[in-house]
């Protein structure tokens, strides 16, 4: 929902407002995770580790709906639309390009909101396991969620390619994460 500043503001102010808008978005992913059946039966440590390694990827999926790949523009929830060119001033050009490509692919699948939510749950529990203690429990949860995601095939019996195509987005997201989660944010210290 966070507006990127109008042109009149300095790029530092643009940076500040862009950085600020990540905070509520991250909190929403934490709340979303807690609503995933089985997530809260993982240990708190493993919940935190999964969130730390998977939240950026879930955000990338959530932000897809803001990206208009055809128009090369982003529309924030407050209705403000910014062209890719104008957003490049934030110095996130490479991330934005990758986001447009990813959102084009994901968007073309035409998932329903509940299917997108199931996909985001799979994205979260498929995140990097390096800090996880009970890997078995996480893998069981992932298996259950992937089974649930097969919903998209039962809804489209004549399209058996959609499910595998969707799972192929997971490595895309991991690449996005590895390339871009080290982007810098800047917070004013008052």
């Amino acid at each position: 929902a966070c507006p990127v500043a109008p042109a009149s503001r300095s790029s530092q102010e643009v940076w500040d407002s862009f950085s600020q808008c990540f905070t509520p978005a991250v909190r929403e992913v934490v709340e979303f995770a807690k609503s995933i059946p089985g997530f809260q039966s993982l240990s708190q440590h493993d919940q935190v580790m999964l969130l730390k390694s998977g939240t950026f990827q879930v955000l990338m999926v959530r932000f897809c709906s803001l990206f208009d790949a055809k128009e090369r523009a982003v529309t924030f929830l407050n209705g403000q639309t910014y062209s890719l060119a104008s957003l490049r001033a934030l110095g996130m050009g490479s991330l934005l390009d990758a986001m447009f490509d990813f959102s084009e692919k994901l968007g073309s699948m035409g998932l329903e909101p509940d299917e997108m939510a199931l996909f985001m749950a799979v994205v979260l529990v498929s995140a990097d396991r390096s800090g996880i203690v009970d890997v078995g429990a996480v893998e069981q949860l992932q298996e259950n969620l992937i089974k649930a995601l097969r919903l998209i095939t039962s809804r489209r019996p004549d399209d058996s390619t959609l499910f595998p195509k969707l799972l192929l987005r997971l490595p895309d997201l991991r690449t996005l994460n590895n390339h871009h989660s080290d982007k810098l944010l800047a917070f004013r210290i008052d």
Binding site: Q12, S19, F22, S181, R188
Partner: peptide, 25 residues
């Protein structure tokens, strides 16, 4: 004077998650 704290997206995300879980303990 230093007016900004700079951190990576990943660190910012980790910070918020740690804060959230600590608050709900």
């Amino acid at each position: 004077p230093k007016t900004h704290r700079v951190m990576t997206l990943a660190d910012h995300i980790s910070h918020i998650i740690t804060q959230d879980f600590a608050r709900n303990q």
